[in-house]
């Protein structure tokens, strides 16, 4: 098989066209009410605010992390009505009346969530930046009830990247929580 060497495109760079059209008046923010970690919150936010930015910048819940901001790393994973999603690729206004659970909402008076305990027991992190997303994703995984084996956990946690490479311990922690 012959592989060509990487060559630059044989075409001129296109002039940067502004395809955004004429300037328009700035739309006004609107009120959005959702329940975050069991508490009703009403925020005044613009429609183009992602759920991730609403949580971090408006609700002051900075446990949810911004990694890539493009749905590729999973650091922003939260639960909406118990289902795990990437909060960076959804708009806050779309979640009017929804129940949002972030890493701050998992522990209760009885103590840490079993997955938080399992992550500590198995030392399932190094830098910790991906951990809130990993744990929220694992809670969603348990709610879904599809993962039975280590191979299932690896496949169904593939939306959460850990650049420290703590994967073996993360899988151990999730397996412990599933078995309990």
């Amino acid at each position: 098989m012959s592989v060509k060497t990487l060559t630059p495109p044989a075409v001129q760079l296109a002039a940067k066209a502004d395809t955004r059209g004429p300037a328009r008046p700035m739309p006004k923010p609107g009120m959005v009410t959702f329940r975050i970690n069991g508490e009703s919150k009403t925020l005044s936010i613009a429609p183009w605010t992602t759920l991730l930015d609403a949580l971090r910048e408006y609700a002051n819940l900075t446990g949810t992390k911004k990694g890539c901001d493009h749905g590729q790393c999973g650091a922003c994973t939260v639960l909406v009505n118990g289902t795990r999603i990437n909060s960076c690729l959804t708009l806050a206004v779309m979640h009017d009346d929804h129940e949002i659970t972030t890493i701050e909402g998992l522990a209760n008076e009885g103590g840490l969530h079993p997955l938080q305990t399992a992550f500590i027991n198995h030392d399932a992190f190094q830098c910790g930046y991906c951990t809130p997303g990993q744990i929220c994703s694992a809670v969603g995984l348990m709610n879904e009830g599809q993962a039975k084996t280590e191979a299932d956990v690896r496949e169904l946690m593939s939306g959460n990247i850990c650049r420290c490479g703590a994967y073996p311990h993360i899988v151990d922690a999730v397996m412990e929580a599933i078995k309990k």
């Binding site: 990487l6 060559t7 630059p8 495109p9 044989a10 075409v11 001129q12 760079l13 296109a14 940067k16 066209a17 395809t19």
Partner: peptide
């Protein structure tokens, strides 16, 4: 990649501008 890169020609994003993928990566 070239559809996503607004500094490059792409007939899908900007009709008539060319295709940077042909001869590109």
């Amino acid at each position: 990649y070239y559809f996503y890169d607004t500094s490059m020609p792409c007939n899908k994003r900007q009709p008539g501008s060319g295709c940077a993928a042909i001869g590109g990566y």
